[in-house]
Design a protein around this nucleic acid. Structure first.
Lengths: 322, 322
DNA sequence: CTGTTAGCGCTTTCAG
DNA sequence: CTGAAAGCGCTAACAG
């Protein structure tokens, strides 16, 4: 194992100078920085994180926190794509990726506390956003830096998001152009997350521009009959926007059960289904989760790297109908 | 921050004794172990991993390695479920979860080397298995402990797997019971992974028992016309077993394009699709990925915890047709 | 601009 | 069975 002392010796400087040089401390002459760096590269020096973290009190790692889950949410491929985008950026920065994923909120809290107190992680990415979330509260109270994926419930939080209002409007407009539905459905989850409400706003805007009527539907994943009876009460529906691919699939399925012979055009969000299912009369909005992961990481380090981003405290990612 | 010295002081022992007590060192009297432990609990002591790792030279973390990917593989919900199962077990052991997920093999190698040399991680879970995989080779050469999810290509590796031959047979049998197809298809990926070959063996066994004929099909995700022309040459196909839900969906889709009016019953693997898609004439085999994650972790620590498992070097997980 | 020194919190000889 | 002391590899005052 090659340590900083080996490098110092080779370069003919003290360990502290070597350390400073490797960290590009501005008080060190460019000449020695270059020399030390060259030697470090030659020797294939890789700093020991544990030693580094012990002295600085801050881990060279970022914590990524998954939502706790009743089976369906967590396993959305969306999250892995975010994770992949995050790690791309972390590798560049010499940071490791630590993950908290649990089945109960209680375990999640323990997991996050361990990250903070035992691993000394100071930077987090929160893959979800919920009002009165104790995890976010805890991070805030302890002055830890974190970025929310999605619309935060506390306006001072850092976040990366899509423009959901606009995306909701675009999806609705696309639907209207493709077929000419006259009685629309808006399909969302029982939780009615913030992002769903925003997409709904976009939907409403376009619908009212066109003087169309619409109906709201709630997908209860555990009980499809409630959705079917809702659909049964609205036989005129001929087009739908769903807040998510899964909700869209559930709606289609129930719709076909109630009206086996009717066609309904539908839009979803997330592009989370196998490509082959996207054919024909199903379109979805890709929200570029990898890009979200990358930008979240950018934002997470903006205090050190880009003050101009840091002031805004948020970044937006585009969307694309596919 | 409460350190081991605080505990030692309270307990009226030296820091070294406190350390030994907390690690249940057998040379320490039960009395002091209990006393020290009680005080530690009272004070809410959480050991600093960085300090611990620095002295022991081994991280309190496990590295989980994702396959590199052409978009489709990584984002399979299967992996998150494994991750979740792994973390359940890690929490119990006071271990952290570190993840390597990259787009190129080159980056993955760097990522894993960083885990080893910088984070001092000594235990890994490999979420895939490939012949001549440089990552597995590297882990082996450096005598690092790792468990493969799936069938390893080197027989001395530790692994967790399903009985794929049996599951392939069961799926085929189920298909034969449900409908009475006479001309079967077996659908797999161009890579033809080990687990696909095993499921194929099970499939063949049942098919030959029943004196049926079959045809192999390869799904090329980037070019559906090749699959369609394969299907076109075999108009008699009336049932299929696919090695994976995605392959199954692709096959169904191509089949419907070629023969819009024909029915085909099909079985897939992985239970990776939204529940609502499982209806009617599509069944899939759930392979309990969470359970695989848990068992992989068990195996990863079997050297310390369960010698009887350690000798077998592998564990199997069940399956269920859903 | 650079070197000396101390110390982060833990474990681990070595000694008793 | 327990204590004293050293040290893991790094960074951060402090001093020059």
């Amino acid at each position: 194992m090659v340590t900083i002392r080996d490098i110092a010796k080779q370069a003919g400087v003290s360990p502290s100078t070597a350390s400073r040089a490797l960290n590009k401390n501005p008080h060190i002459s460019k000449k020695t920085i270059d020399r030390v760096q060259t030697i470090a590269d030659q020797l294939g020096y890789m700093p020991d994180y544990n030693a580094k973290n012990l002295t600085t009190g801050e881990a060279s790692a970022v914590g990524v926190i998954f939502p706790v889950d009743g089976h369906a949410v967590q396993s959305n491929p969306f999250y892995i794509k975010v994770l992949s985008g995050v790690n791309d950026e972390l590798i560049k920065r010499g940071y490791a990726l630590s993950v908290a994923i649990t089945k109960t909120l209680d375990d999640l809290q323990k997991n996050v506390k361990s990250m903070i107190y035992q691993s000394k992680i100071k930077r987090f990415i929160l893959l979800y956003s919920q009002p009165n979330d104790p995890i976010a509260k805890f991070l805030r109270e302890n002055h830890l830096r974190f970025v929310v994926i999605g619309q935060p419930t506390v306006e001072t939080d850092y976040y990366v998001n899509n423009n959901n209002v606009e995306a909701g409007a675009a999806a609705t407009r696309y639907l209207l152009e493709q077929s000419q539905p006259e009685h629309l459905a808006f399909v969302h989850s029982p939780e009615n997350w913030l992002f769903e409400k925003e997409r709904f706003t976009g939907f409403q805007n376009v619908v009212s521009e066109h003087n169309l009527d619409y109906q709201e539907f709630t997908v209860d994943q555990s009980n499809s009959t409630t959705l079917e009876s809702q659909i049964f009460e609205h036989p005129q529906i001929d087009g739908a926007v769903a807040t998510d691919d899964i909700n869209a699939m559930n709606f289609i399925d129930s719709f076909k059960k109630v009206y086996p012979l009717k066609q309904v055009e539908i839009m979803g969000f997330n592009n989370s289904l196998p490509k082959v299912l996207l054919d024909r009369n199903y379109r979805t909005v890709d929200l570029f989760p990898e890009e979200m992961g990358k930008k979240a990481t950018l934002l997470l380090f903006s205090d050190r790297e880009d003050q101009s981003i840091d002031e805004k405290k948020h970044l937006l990612v585009g969307y694309k109908i596919v």
